[in-house]
Every structure is written in C-alpha cells, then in structure tokens.
C-alpha cells in the first residue's frame, strides 16, 4: 500500500533525468563549438598583429613610438574582449546551468561541469601561450629597429659636430661628445659661452639607451631567467644555493646591461652606476 505511488515517482524522476542529460549534452556540444570559433577569431587577431606591427613600428616617426603602442594596445584590447566574452558565456551557460541542477539532491552534473570548465581552462592556457609567443616575436622584430635608430643618431652627430660656430667671433667649435641635451660650449678664441642645441633626433638618445642596452644583453637576461629560483623555501640548503645562483646570473646581466648603457651615453656613467647599485640592492632585498 505504501508503495502505491513509488512507481510514478520513479518514472517522473527518470524523465527529469533524461531531460536534464539531453539539455546538458546539447549545451556541452555548443560550448566546445563556441570555444573553437572564439579561438579562430583570437588567431585572426594575432596573425594580423604579427603581420602589421613591424611596419607600423618602422613607419612611426614619433620617438616614443606612440602610434605603434596604440596599435598594440588596441590589438590587445580585442584579445581581452574575446576572452571576456568567453568568460561571460561560461558564467551564464556553464556555471549557472550547473547551479540550476545542483540544487537537486540526485545526480548532480559534477562531471559535466568539470569537463566544460576544463575546456575553458585549456582554452585560456592555449590562447595565453599564443599571445605571449606572438607578442615576444613582434617585440624581437621591432627591437632590431633600435640599432637602426641609434645608427641614425650617430650619423646625424657626425654631420653636425664640425658645423657649429661661435655666435660672437665665428670661430669653428668642436662638439667633442654626443650631447643629448642643450649644452654650453665655450669658444676657445673669445671665451663666449655658446649654447649647443642637439635637435629632436639626438635628444631621443636618452630614452633609447636603456631599451637598446637591454636588447643587446637579452641573451644574458634569458640566461638569468632560466636560473630564477622557484624551489621550496623550507629546504634551506637548496634555497640558499638556488638564490645565490640566481643572484650571480642577475648581476652578470645587470652589469653587462649598464656597461652597454654607459657606452651609449658615457656622460651619464656616474648616474648610471648609482642606478645600477640601486637595482642590485633591490634584487637582493
């Protein structure tokens, strides 16, 4: 007597379960298709970025390369928009659906949720890796241009260094160094203090020096990166040894990078050395 309605109840539960499974299977299939389509769009943006970025950089006459950076920022914004769309959809279609059925005490679609969210995480990891690779490739390509910019500055300096004359007596004045800011040059004949104005191109040397030095010592930076210690902190011996090796490679890179900076702008050697000491201290801290 007491089992009179249990058959109907089981049947109802079975129908509900079947309906839920059908719905989840359909969502799961659409989810994979959706991720695949979004990844195609992601790849399109990266392909366009890799193709266009070097020429935009080269044609950008602004010393700070603002047009290039705006382009890069815009492309990155598109990638972010795609990722955001994926995340918003995962929230609505996957997590909300899971929450809806998770309220039932039976057959929580645990595995379904995990499969879908695994696909989301894999999508994130894959696209992040693609993005990093594409941006690194473009950075490598555009950093080659730093040498060209530096060569152009040296060429301009060669042209102007012997063409400067005293405003008072007309005596030819020698510009013995690559001055990147306005500088007083005293006339050896009449002692008049003249002002040498280096021009827009040579002024960029101050901002070019560090990225150029970093570009020239990139191999040492990569070597250092390979030795960054990420091991366990509680293994004191391994920790000490790991940190010492890391510091050694960092110092090697930093010294070489600042030596390059000093070669590019010898006038800033004194200030550069203090900056070097600070960066070294920061790393040890």
């Amino acid at each position: 007597m007491f089992n009179l309605f249990s058959g109907n109840k089981n049947k109802q539960q079975s129908e509900e379960l079947s309906s839920m499974q059908q719905e989840l299977a359909a969502i799961e299939q659409r989810w994979y298709t959706f991720l695949s389509k979004l990844e195609e769009k992601y790849d399109e943006v990266l392909t366009a970025f890799e193709a266009e970025a070097p020429s935009i950089y080269e044609q950008d006459e602004d010393y700070a390369k603002r047009t290039y950076h705006r382009f890069k920022s815009g492309m990155d914004g598109q990638l972010t928009a795609i990722r955001k769309k994926m995340q918003d959809t995962a929230e609505v279609q996957i997590r909300n659906t899971y929450r809806k059925y998770d309220t039932a005490s039976y057959n929580s679609p645990y595995e379904w949720r995990n499969r879908c969210l695994d696909a989301e995480h894999q999508w994130e990891e894959r696209t992040n890796a693609k993005r990093d690779a594409a941006f690194a490739k473009v950075e490598q390509a555009v950093s080659e241009d730093l040498e060209v910019q530096y060569a152009n500055i040296l060429a301009t300096y060669e042209q102007i260094k012997n063409k400067f004359t005293c405003t008072q007596c007309g005596c030819k004045l020698t510009i013995d160094r690559l001055y990147f800011i306005s500088t007083y040059i005293t006339c050896p004949a009449c002692n008049t203090q003249n002002t040498f104005e280096p021009g827009t191109q040579i002024r960029t040397l101050e901002w070019l020096a560090r990225p150029l030095a970093e570009h020239r010592t990139k191999h040492l930076y990569e070597q250092y990166q390979q030795h960054v210690y990420n091991g366990r902190h509680d293994d004191r011996v391994a920790y000490r040894q790991g940190k010492e090796a890391e510091s050694m490679y960092y110092e090697k890179y930093l010294r070489a990078m600042f030596d390059e900076m000093n070669n590019i702008i010898p006038d800033k050697r004194e200030q550069n050395e203090l900056f070097y000491q600070r960066m070294l201290a920061d790393h040890k801290r």
């Binding site: 007083y184 900056f275 600070r278």
Partner: peptide
C-alpha cells in the same frame, strides 16, 4: 635659468629618482 641649466637639472632629477631605493 637658461635652457641648458634647466635641461641638465631635469635629467639629473630623473637620475635621483632612479637611484633612490
């Protein structure tokens, strides 16, 4: 001040910030 004085001071103030940990 004259332009060269301002420009050198400007460059050196940036250096001061760089060396101040």
């Amino acid at each position: 001040v004259e332009q060269p004085v301002w420009e050198e001071a400007s460059t050196l103030w940036i250096s001061r910030m760089q060396q101040d940990n």
